[in-house]
């Protein structure tokens, strides 16, 4: 098919844009940039995904850097969303967020405060503390959080602009492990819910959207796929399909079969005799 990414996103977005903190996005797929073996490959995948918002990390500059991810995002009109990956305490995360604000010229931050570097699970106490501090400092805070409806409520209460629960631990590709909790978070939340982490393939992204999530954030499912560009395209379509299905309203699950063809007027074709 010949549709451009804009046409695909646009067909879906007409009248149904993603709005976070007053900013409108026609794509509901937020991408990460981690795990890509080359910047050229990353760029092709990001373009194919149709994303308009993409996370970056803050790391020490060093020699031998291959080009700049910053330039890559800018020339493709993709907004950079700095993260606080690698932070274990609220104070580290707050300082990293401030550095991200300076480097990327944005007060948006994907807030990550993990408890340890094995599970990479969010530390709820430090997370809420950092979120409160950053909101008070004028940041637009998008916290990576557990799939815990009560924690999601606390994060919204301190003024986060979106809630980003994990589907499964970072990098596992296990999909949405607790769909009931994700649905519960969606049902209660007055701010957008972004399914963040754990996506393995397109059906996972579609499921998250069918559950009512407003967007999906993923990185390694694309960057470490055998064909990242093709997987990026699959994710773009999956997010659109899932959103459409969510709005369309699925049929109720039934215990027994229900014929879809009329039962009246069948021919008498008893040929067994």
């Amino acid at each position: 098919m010949n549709a451009t990414p804009d046409a695909v996103n646009g067909a879906h977005a007409a009248g149904d844009p993603l709005v976070i903190a007053g900013r409108t996005f026609s794509s509901r797929l937020i991408m990460g940039t981690g795990g890509a073996p080359s910047l050229a490959g990353l760029e092709a995948a990001l373009v194919a995904s149709g994303t308009e918002l993409t996370t970056v990390a803050l790391r020490r500059v060093h020699t031998g850097t291959e080009g700049s991810v910053w330039d890559l995002l800018e020339r493709n009109g993709i907004r950079a969303l700095p993260n606080t990956a690698g932070c274990f305490t609220a104070s580290e995360a707050v300082l990293t967020a401030k550095l991200g604000r300076e480097a990327c010229e944005t007060d948006w931050v994907k807030l990550e405060v993990v408890a340890d570097d094995v599970s990479l699970l969010p530390d709820p106490i430090e997370l809420v503390s950092a979120a409160r501090t950053l909101v008070d400092d004028g940041f637009t805070v998008l916290p990576y959080t557990n799939d815990d409806p009560i924690l999601a409520r606390k994060l919204a209460d301190v003024g986060c602009a979106a809630i980003m629960p994990l589907g499964a631990p970072i990098g596992t590709g296990l999909g949405v492990l607790n769909p009931r909790n994700i649905a519960a978070i969606v049902a209660e939340s007055e701010v957008p819910v972004v399914l963040d982490a754990g996506i393995g393939t397109a059906s996972d992204a579609a499921q998250a959207m069918e559950l009512g999530c407003d967007a999906v954030l993923l990185a390694t499912a694309v960057t470490r796929a055998a064909d990242p560009v093709r997987m990026a395209r699959a994710m773009r379509h999956a997010v659109i399909a899932g959103r459409e299905a969510f709005h369309a309203g699925r049929i109720p699950r039934r215990e027994e079969a229900l014929a879809s063809s009329p039962t009246d007027g069948r021919a008498n074709l008893d040929l067994a005799m």
């Binding site: 990460g32 990390a57 991810v69 990956a85 480097a103």
Partner: peptide, 10 residues
């Protein structure tokens, strides 16, 4: 002095 750059991640 820490000098940090936006880089691939997340």
């Amino acid at each position: 002095v820490e000098i940090l750059a936006a880089t691939q991640g997340g």
